[in-house]
Structures are given as structure tokens and as C-alpha cells.
Nucleic acid binder design. Structure first.
Length: 221
DNA sequence: CCAGACGTTGTT
DNA sequence: GTCTGG
DNA sequence: CCAGACGTTGTT
DNA sequence: GTCTGG
């Protein structure tokens, strides 16, 4: 699954890598948690914009903003049929930009966090869905990250992982005119292409208030 | 028809 | 909004 | 995902 | 145990 991740790159680098026409400011983050803002990419035709979205989907029909930190993930296997996501997969897709994410491995006596990232520390993107909620004083745009089975590298840590899209699939995923759900769903598979590595890190990352390089410092097991 | 849920994870 | 359960 | 609260009354 | 907040 994906319940915590990193994005340390400045906005300028994200703009370059994802070829964005506009983007919000971004400060390096080592411990992005649900309910916080994430850096997402949406497309308008072939033009891509960077936007900040609240992580944890608040569907347009939700009565209240709270209690929404629950839809932080959507299962790839069922996203096209679940009422909460079905309508979004056809027309409200986005990329969630990251450069690493955390998984907790259950072991005797506790949980060991791992930081999973590209061996070259490059940026990547999760497949996401977003929505706009307008029942409060201010509209809220929020998102969820799609998950799938773990890949070979991460299977021993946890049985699920976020969907990491390949750059050549970004446009197909983002294109708002693409309503071919079955071809979109084919993209939602465990990523074996990215050169990922998994480093055990200390439980410092467990606390949401902890932030900074210490979150990703590798520890010996 | 209306009312109520709408999610994932992990654990049992 | 849309689906399920009654 | 993990951490932390989980309650009411009345007083400051 | 279960819910909320980050």
C-alpha cells in the first residue's frame, strides 16, 4: 500500500521532468502523510499543470470534509467498479509526483519501515484520481493513490504497492479525452521497470511530525 | 420506491 | 453521483 | 501509513 | 477495539 512518501525535489526540477506549463511552489518533503498536500500533475489537452491536492479523496458528494482521510488508496483491481471511484477513473485522473515511498514490514516485535526509491534518486509518478468538493466555504481538491500487488523487489516487505507509471504512459493516463477504461486499467500493474531499491530506515519516520533527511537515513538491521 | 453507504489495510 | 439493500 | 485519543462539566 | 488527525 502507500501511506507515506517523499518528494524532495524543488518545483523547478518537477516542472522540467514532467514538462509542466505551470506549477505551485514546493519545498522538499521527507514525510508526506494523508490529509497533507501532495504535488500532482493534471492535463488539459496536451498541456500539463502542477497542482497541490489534499491526499485522501473527498468525493464531490461528501457531506463533510472530515472523515475523509480514509480514501487514501484505491485498489487497481476494483477501481473501475467501486461506486466511490468508478466515475473518476473515466475523467479525473492525475499523477502524484514522488521520489520515494515508505512501507512497513511486519516482523516479530514490531514494524520495520523501509524507504523505497529509485537507485538514481529520480522522480516517478503514482497513478492517482482526484475530485473537487464544493460543499464547504472553500472548494477542496483532493486525490487518492491507486495500489496493486507488490513487485518482485517489495514483495518481502509488503504485499501491496502504489502503481508507478512509466513516463511513456503519462500522456495516456492524463489525457482527459481518454475514456477507454479497460486500456487505462491495463496500466495499473506492479512496476518491474523502474530501478528501485528498498532501504530499511529508523522508526523516526513513523511520527508524522518528523520531517527531514533523518527520515530516509538507512539503518542496519 | 427511499435510505444509506460509498475505502484499504491487516488481522482473525 | 451511483450503487446496494430492504 | 502511524500516533494518539477515546468524556463531561465547569472554570479559567 | 476503533476512530480521528496528520
Amino acid at each position: 500500500m502507500c501511506g507515506r512518501f517523499t518528494l524532495r525535489a524543488p518545483a523547478s526540477r518537477i516542472v522540467e521532468v514532467f514538462q509542466l506549463d505551470a506549477a505551485p511552489d514546493w519545498s522538499p518533503r521527507y514525510n508526506i502523510a494523508p490529509t497533507q498536500q501532495v504535488f500532482a500533475v493534471r492535463a488539459d489537452g496536451t498541456t500539463r499543470h502542477g497542482v497541490l491536492l489534499r491526499w485522501g479523496l473527498v468525493p464531490s458528494w461528501a457531506d463533510q470534509l472530515d472523515k475523509s482521510g480514509r480514501m487514501i488508496n484505491a485498489r487497481a483491481e476494483t477501481v473501475a467498479v467501486k461506486p466511490a471511484f468508478r466515475r473518476l477513473i473515466a475523467r479525473r485522473r492525475c499523477l502524484v509526483v514522488a521520489d520515494g515511498y515508505y512501507e512497513w514490514q511486519k516482523r516479530d516485535g514490531g514494524k520495520q519501515p523501509y524507504w523505497i526509491h529509485r537507485s538514481d534518486d529520480g522522480l516517478f509518478a503514482f497513478a492517482g484520481l482526484w475530485d473537487r468538493w464544493e460543499k464547504g466555504d472553500e472548494p477542496v481538491e483532493s486525490c487518492t493513490i491507486i495500489t496493486t500487488d507488490a513487485n518482485r523487489l517489495t514483495r518481502s516487505i509488503h504485499d501491496r504497492m502504489p502503481v508507478i507509471l512509466e513516463p511513456e504512459h503519462y500522456q495516456r493516463w492524463l489525457d482527459p479525452a481518454n475514456h477507454d477504461v479497460s486500456s487505462l486499467q491495463q496500466l495499473l500493474v506492479p512496476n518491474e521497470q523502474q530501478p528501485l531499491r528498498a532501504d530499511p530506515v529508523s522508526t523516526y519516520v513513523n511520527q508524522v511530525r518528523n520531517e527531514g533527511p533523518r527520515c530516509i537515513e538507512a539503518v542496519a538491521l
